[in-house]
């Protein structure tokens, strides 16, 4: 066993056999987030699921960044973090607004919005 993953040592690029499980976890987390977004009715849970998908994308970015031994992936994850924070603020403001109008968090209360 090569000392590939002792903690904090970032001087070795990940070989493909180590990269693959990370990508699989990322794909699975993305799919779970998508399923949650499609099936849950609560607006807040739907926004939580988009955050889950952000997480999955971030994991893939960092794993690939380690595969190529660069820091660009981490920089992009920090940017994604900013976008997620902004999105959370806007989304929750919207949720509060919608809740005041209909007194429910159900996405189905806004059925008439469909085209």
């Amino acid at each position: 066993m090569t000392p590939m993953l002792t903690l904090g040592v970032s001087e070795y690029a990940l070989p493909a056999s180590v990269l693959a499980p990370y990508l699989f976890v990322s794909a699975a987390m993305f799919a779970i987030g998508l399923i949650g977004f499609l099936t849950r009715k609560n607006l807040i849970i739907m926004f939580l699921c988009t955050e889950l998908m952000f997480q999955a994308a971030g994991l893939a970015l960092i794993a690939f960044g380690r595969h190529h031994l660069g820091e660009d992936g981490q920089t992009f994850v920090i940017f994604v973090l900013c976008v997620a924070a902004a999105e959370a603020a806007m989304a929750l403001a919207l949720v509060v607004l919608l809740f005041r109008r209909r007194e429910t968090l159900s996405a189905e209360a806004w059925k008439e919005l469909k085209g």
Binding site: A27, A28, F30, A31, I32, L34, I35, L38, T39, R40, K41, N42, I45, T104, L105, S106, E108
Partner: peptide, 21 residues
């Protein structure tokens, strides 16, 4: 209430998600 206790189309959603996965 039904918003939280009942999922909307669980079977179709799961199939679509895992095909994507």
């Amino acid at each position: 209430d039904d918003t939280d206790a009942v999922a909307r189309e669980p079977v179709v959603g799961s199939i679509v998600g895992f095909v994507l996965m």
